[in-house]
Amino acid sequence: MIDKEVVVPGDFLSDDPSMAGVGTFVENGKVFAQVYGILESRDRLRVISLGGKYVPSPGDDIIGNVVDFSLSSWKVDINSPYGADLHISEYPQRVDFGDMSRYIKVGDSIITKVTRVDNEKRVDLTLKGYDLRILRGGRIIDFFHTKIPRLIGRSGSMINMIKEESKCAIYVGQNGRIWVNGEDDKMALAIKTIKKIEKEAHTSGLTARIAQFLEDER
């Protein structure tokens, strides 16, 4: 736990502005923490927030819930302070106006990609692309979005371990929604494991502990 220092906003971090990374700000040539979180100092100084909402950025693969539709687009809740639009031209097939609910209904969940975010945080989505689809079956759980790198693990080691052990299909959206599909008891195991990772994300040696946990649960 020596490499994991908790910092609060305004904490002085460095004299070198080129070290400033995510979660920091520079004032008078000095770097300060901008959020309450864990300081990481590999190549740059980054503060991983322990709270906060997901803010979309282009290229993110996320899980959204369709909450409404207008004449030409579906309104999607993306677990963020900002709603998002999925225009009918971004649906893989041609969709006629007024016929939209045949394709995606209000209440459906979709795996989607953020294509554009403007200055006022208006968000556009697409369903055209590899793995983007409407979700059928399975369960969606909420996860804390800044902890997702821990859930995935180094080059996917953690998530692959859970997938293998639980034989579930798992999709991790970058907005902190996770879709799990499989047999009921296996799904319960996967969700239990994911919740455990969320709770212990800030501790070290997590992958080994989760491997042990899955072993015990078998």
Partner: peptide
């Protein structure tokens, strides 16, 4: 506010 993860210049 800090607990909510809101970016701030200080407490």
């Amino acid at each position: 506010l800090a607990d909510a993860g809101i970016p701030m210049k200080g407490l």
